[in-house]
Amino acid sequence: MNQPIKAKHQRLVLVLVALAALIGAAMLAAWGLRSQASYFYVPADIAANPPEAGRAVRLGGMVEAGSLKTDADGVTTRFVVGDGKARVPVTFKGIRPDLFKEGSGVVAEGKLGADGTFVADNLLAKHDEKYVPREMAGMTAEQARKTVEETR
């Protein structure tokens, strides 16, 4: 390998190496996306076809009025997310986002526990009128008002 390779071959070798690496990257990406992408669920989806326990997913819906409670440790929050069709209990350990409140929309990132409780690692709430989480955009129009009224 210490002699310069023949001119004709060099370009071929380089192209093949680059191609092999890119195909490797593509296969790795496909595999990674299949196993690691986290899917978005609304409570009705979870009721109909729950994700396997322990898989990273996102749950979006409205925080039901009157469901928000803080545990004795002062940092664990429990609430129920609903979409008008189904309800999912959620626990979250951490500081709640600034605009998180009952009757407003939320997207929770986390895993569904074996007991059917959703364990959230992170909560995404509405920043303000202009910055609505994308996943909630479709819901607020159709389901939000109804959901809020139903749970009030």
Partner: peptide
Amino acid sequence: QKVSVGPPYFNPA
């Protein structure tokens, strides 16, 4: 389909 891709994909890949 609504999907989010995060560190579990990006870090190892």
